[in-house]
Design a protein around this nucleic acid. Structure first.
Lengths: 213, 213
DNA sequence: GTCTATAACTCGATAGAC
DNA sequence: GTCTATCGAGTTATAGAC
């Protein structure tokens, strides 16, 4: 699945083994012997032909599972009729990707706790340029609140997306399943767009001037 | 600082030592020897007079650092003139507490990764009742959108609060410091209340009928 | 309760044969 | 590249003296 240019299949096998174990047991909770055995080796020595040490496996894993390229491709192709439409799609896209790559997100948390996000910082910095481009595109729409600073727009979106994902991991399944995924996305993106208050500050009952889609 | 009913000072000393090390090095990355030495013992054996094993230390630590009681007291005393006011205060309160108890939050993440949130689930379930009471209070205000299901209100608020905190841990300090804390809170709570779009869907330039606060 | 001593393993990493 | 064998240091946890 993870493309390696050469026939270096052993490396990806090791990474797949390490991924599963890291996610289940944590970084320090997983031994080189366990990784080796899960990858089909008889002892841990074989791993050192492919990686200099244990930490290098985590770094390679973070890099291999980084959904950066996929995300960038989709972002560039994204088209919308309004800021509301764009943000709605973006929210759905990001939460969907975070869910699909939840393993990667756990690896990020792992790096955050075990190495104080030392390795992820590199991945994030790579993302900064494209991110600003997307936000600039968002702010070009006339229905976006022009008084919101760019940074606030980014952090607000990021916070809701990350928080949505985190909450799904902590909420009891019984509660989470009271609404299906589409309903959750619809409601939460509504909050992102219109907030929690009633849409009109004081609703003046006037005939329809706004268009319905 | 952490109140223990008896003169059981040794226990709190151990917990303080364990807290610092767990947060710096992770759970499996911290040894009983290290905890013992940081707590003033000459060997790890002394710890076993107070805790049956290593995991018990983490559990006791999670329980000791749980800000539940503090939060509940503040929540009960919270007064507001409107839903917007209430939610604004609540957002400020929760983000502030999360920041103040960021150590506890890291312990939660640690439990999430190392034990699949097994221990935190207990703490969360304890919080469910009071949480519903607060939300019921929120929904009593007339300016809150009545079409938002209770669960959506909870998760939306939780997501933004958690996401705000998480983003502060990953964002480069240079970016984070471009706005001061009060400005961040103001903007982000504005998004929570009114969303990212312009306040009126399509601004009809009519004389003031809406009241300013 | 805290100590020394130690049991019984497991850790990451290396050496060298094949 | 993968193997066996192993080094040296680390691990959790216990036994028993004080």
């Amino acid at each position: 699945m993870t493309a390696t240019n050469k026939g270096d299949r052993a490396t990806t096998t090791i990474l797949e083994a390490a991924e599963q174990l890291f996610l289940e047991q944590g970084y320090h909770g997983t031994s080189m012997r366990e990784i080796a055995q899960a990858a089909g080796y008889k002892s841990a020595a074989g791993l050192y032909s492919h990686f200099p040490d244990k930490e290098a496996i985590l770094v390679a894993l973070l890099d291999a599972r980084d959904p950066y390229d996929t995300l960038l491709t989709i972002l560039e192709a994204l088209q919308a009729t309004s800021g509301a439409d764009f943000l709605g799609q973006l929210y759905r896209l990001l939460t969907g990707m975070l869910q699909q790559h939840s393993g990667f997100f756990r690896l990020v948390l792992l790096d955050l706790l075990e190495f104080n996000a030392a390795h992820v910082q590199v991945l994030i910095s790579r993302f900064q340029g494209p991110l600003l481009e997307v936000v600039a595109r968002v702010q070009g729409y006339p229905d976006i609140n022009p008084h919101l600073p760019t940074l606030v727009l980014i952090r607000g979106m990021a916070a809701l997306v990350i928080g949505t994902h985190m909450s799904s991991q902590v909420m009891p399944p019984a509660v989470l399943n009271q609404l299906d995924e589409a309903a959750w996305q619809g409601h939460l993106s509504h909050i992102l767009l219109h907030g929690i208050l009633r849409a009109p500050p004081t609703p003046p009952p006037r005939p329809a001037n706004h268009r319905t889609e």
